[in-house]
Design a binder for these strands. Sequence first.
DNA 1: AGTAAAACTTTCTTGGTGTAAGTAAATTCC
DNA 2: GGAATTTACTTACACCAAGAAAGTTTTACT
Lengths: 394, 394
Amino acid sequence: MFRTLTSTEMRSVNRSAVLEHIRRHSPVARSVIARDLKLSLPTVMRIVDELTAHGWVRPTGVKEWSSRRRRDLLEYHKEGHAVIGVDLGGTKMFGALANIGGEIIGERTINGHGTSDEASYAMLEEIIGELMRVPRPRGQKIRGIAVGAPGVTRAQDGVVEWAPSLNWRAYPLKQKLEKRFRLPCLVDNDVNLAALGEQWFGAGVGARNIALITIGTGVGAGLIVDGALYRGHNHAAGEVGFLLSQRAELDKQYTRFGALESVISGTAIAERAQRARTRAASKHHRQLTAQAVFDAYRQHEKWSEPIINETVDYLSIAIINISALLDPEVIILGGGVSDSADILLPAVQARIHNVLPKTPTLKVSTLGRRAAVMGAIAQIVYTTSDYFVARKLV
Amino acid sequence: MFRTLTSTEMRSVNRSAVLEHIRRHSPVARSVIARDLKLSLPTVMRIVDELTAHGWVRPTGVKEWSSRRRRDLLEYHKEGHAVIGVDLGGTKMFGALANIGGEIIGERTINGHGTSDEASYAMLEEIIGELMRVPRPRGQKIRGIAVGAPGVTRAQDGVVEWAPSLNWRAYPLKQKLEKRFRLPCLVDNDVNLAALGEQWFGAGVGARNIALITIGTGVGAGLIVDGALYRGHNHAAGEVGFLLSQRAELDKQYTRFGALESVISGTAIAERAQRARTRAASKHHRQLTAQAVFDAYRQHEKWSEPIINETVDYLSIAIINISALLDPEVIILGGGVSDSADILLPAVQARIHNVLPKTPTLKVSTLGRRAAVMGAIAQIVYTTSDYFVARKLV
DNA sequence: AGTAAAACTTTCTTGGTGTAAGTAAATTCC
DNA sequence: GGAATTTACTTACACCAAGAAAGTTTTACT
């Protein structure tokens, strides 16, 4: 729990701080970095040299800008490295090749998933293989591969403990990928990666405490607490699908899906709509999707209102409970259902104001389905550049 | 957010690790520390010398113990320093003088609280003054004063933003105390200190992720996340009193007390009992307390059952929600109501097993009303010995 | 008694940070 | 238009702290 440091690791701490500063403020001059981070100028120089040599940072070429002398500014070298990120969703696999600035170079999607553990893995290998063959700017190397899996993952050793949709159980994914592709590989929960993605490139930029709620096939949350991903004691933090919001739910058993999940997930919304419609019209309409229910609501079709209202209510309760417990700066809505944020956000906003003393900022994911892939970039930068953080206990 | 380090601070990181190791494993030999913490022996020697010189650690005098040579072992020097901790509860003030090993040297309690902000402060000063005059082992100096306030506190600058029971609003407590007592002073939320206390000396020893739920006059929680106290973006993390567990609660306004608080707090239990009794017997009994309701339940008095069942249910929901979101290793029950844990714990235990994939360990506070004061010790040790922690991002 | 092993000690090297003095570039002032 | 001034960076060096390696002490075992 208490990690010790050598001088080299102290350098890593400082290097992380400098790189992070440049990433967030580029273009920026060395002297500004020194001032902001309270480092001496020689130290900043040395670290910047190191970062430049490794392709994380480069001089802009642009000179001067304000009073007195300005020499070349520095910027985060977006094109310095490429990263492969894959989001293994519940229903499809989405992979991207991107540079470390979050610019996507190539994408691949495969619908459906494997029927066995090895079939799922083969599809993943296929996607990664294709992405590795996508042409990149000359000299740009792939720095690593990060995979987000829907289920319980042990990020430390890269084992997927349980991912039902892929038929993986105690599956040593990282090990297999590293053996196959000979690159640093890394496995995490898909929602965790998405939260990190929003923190680096999306709606959570600049925030130190973030909750990303994704509502799609299922419901989950990724938590960033005091600046770092929080995974929990059993890798089960952020399982908001299992939140309870009624006393009656105590008497039921929830194994595959949680209580909240059975109300507000896209699947659940569609199911309720299906039931309402067959009751109302006594004839089967086409298969309804959550999307269709929201569209109906936009068209003021009466039957959709109780469904949407119920969804809004239970989502509001979840958001209130998350805020009461975690007091994040921002709560981000992601996943397929967030396409209907135009309906959800204002409604939820109105509901939570009464009940909480302090309300977080509510936002919609700006990265959408790419969130996890963007988080993959962040994770690869973290691990391959030895990110260390230090903190003084208050 | 990204803090930089100098060599001296690197030393602080390592010193913290060594002190922490000795605190948790004493008596222990230098060579063992080096092995466990992956430090070289010379470094451990130097740090231990430093710690000994400052009174944090001392040689046991006891020699050897196993194969080959063993020289003097080291132990945490419990009596090395004294600390004053004060818990400003909702209804009474409880202060203690203790050594850094958590052994109490003297205690003082004042019932009730001031009618104005300055009256409350005067009472606090009075308690601290008395504790400073309690005779201590010779040579033992008071290292600092930590105060836990019921309400919103800014630990960083020691300002109590809002503590209704004490009539404090934006009250610069730390500043006033330091001016008066000329010692390092420190102000935090009472439940936060209690959580820290349980982590150092109580039911949370060894755990990295802890939620302490206190149920007394009000309801609150202290969260320890990845080893450190988590306070949230607006110093409002752990406000479990505001958790919702029914859709109907969305339509009410909760300003002074939260929704959950109005059901499971000691006050709320007593109120419901009062109503039930007056209805049943149509004559006023003596003022009922939560304690009395639990006693009645133990005596199988029928009227108490629905009250206790309701309490158990909503507490279970809260615990389930906390687990789903935070996945702590242990959830500790504290506060006045935890005296009835013999009833609550097994009942809650039974309720949560069905609903959650992973359940945390449920425990009762082992420190009771002293929890916050014990946490005060921890905080003072943290701040006055410059605790730094370093962490590699996965 | 001699030997081996473990637990420190001492000495020296290495990595890294900061200070201080120095140089270069650009703006401002006269 | 040149000198003074300010800012950005550079160089040289001192200092701090960790680790490696070799030396010393203590103890168990033969």
